[in-house]
Amino acid sequence: MYRFLLAPRWLAVSALALLAVPFCVFMGSWQLSRFDMRVAQHRTAKHDSVKIAAEAPVPLASVLPNVRAQVPGADSGRQISATGSYDAGHQLLVPDRTLDGRNGFYVLTPLRVGGGAALPVVRGWLPGDASAAERSRSIPAAPAGQVTVTGALQNPESTDTSGVSASGALPSGQLGIISAASLVNVLPYPVYGGWITAAHPSAPLKAVPPAAPPNSGLDLKAFQNLGYTGQWFVFAAFVVFMWFRLIRREAEARADAALGLLPEEDDGVPEGPGPGPGGVDAGPDAERTEGSAAHVA
């Protein structure tokens, strides 16, 4: 019944299916391995960030030797100690920042360190509206004199940073994005590329948890890999399904043909009276002509 599978056409179809199925399975397995790799990287980065945060503070100069230095990826979240004096005259508020599900703002005060440069320090978070708090003068003053601040080193923010709102112009004394690129326009001295969030703010300020390092979470690419995995496995199953379906249809068609159940093909003969003598159609006019001839006879 299935001897037709030995025909050249069916041998080619079967060979194509046998090649397509392993290829689809291989591609699906490869995409799954890419997803597993990204998950492992996420877990490793999370473990490293927790480990780094628990280490003893290191001097600012050991991580950021100058204002042009960028925050090393391995040092994001590391505890940094910096000594200098707060510049309360250039204090800034960062509005629309949430903490524990409540809306509020950051209090950012530049810390002037050696060489005249400033390290942006988020001294803490307060609930409510930044503009209203500034008008009511309810923001705690920064400590005077020389201080040593300890906090988690953070990467510069961008418009893609979670929680950042870059919509519209802000009132004077407020800042939308914490980065050297935005601070250089409002501060009269050089600014470090990174910033820190103070570990022990004075009441009523609340400590701002350090953000996760960039590209340390499960991004869209990880879920794309997972989606592609499912697609390739579906393709493999579809190839197997179509192969069996085609074989079944061919077997059923051959069985029907053996039993004489296939519909007869149209022979192309038109309906109506057949051709008369000499191959001429015997239509109504021909009948009248024949009748007249008989009457004359």
Score class of each variant (00 low, 15 high):
221 K>M: 15
13 V>R: 13
169 A>L: 10
230 G>Y: 11
172 S>A: 14
276 G>S: 09
28 G>E: 07
91 Q>Y: 00
184 V>C: 00
78 R>F: 03
154 Q>K: 12
224 Q>F: 13
58 V>E: 04
158 S>L: 01
95 P>K: 01
119 L>W: 06
257 A>Y: 00
270 P>N: 05
209 P>N: 10
212 A>V: 11
227 G>S: 13
20 A>T: 04
99 L>D: 05
147 V>C: 08
160 D>W: 12
284 P>Y: 13
213 P>E: 03
202 S>P: 05
168 G>I: 09
52 I>T: 14
291 G>T: 10
37 M>T: 14
121 V>F: 04
99 L>C: 05
253 A>I: 01
48 D>Y: 03
281 D>R: 11
262 L>G: 02
112 R>P: 01
18 L>H: 01
69 A>S: 15
82 A>D: 03
133 A>K: 02
78 R>V: 05
36 D>I: 06
23 F>P: 00
213 P>I: 04
205 L>I: 04
213 P>T: 09
173 G>W: 03
101 G>A: 06
43 R>G: 08
237 A>G: 15
288 R>I: 12
296 V>I: 07
234 V>P: 00
185 N>H: 13
66 N>A: 11
116 G>M: 06
77 G>Q: 08
259 L>W: 02
207 A>Y: 00
244 F>N: 09
119 L>Y: 08
25 V>N: 01
142 A>H: 05
83 T>Y: 01
270 P>L: 12
125 W>G: 08
93 L>D: 11
190 P>M: 07
193 G>T: 10
137 R>K: 14
182 S>I: 00
127 P>F: 03
59 P>G: 11
78 R>P: 00
199 A>F: 02
276 G>R: 04
174 Q>T: 15
79 Q>M: 14
89 G>M: 07
71 V>Y: 12
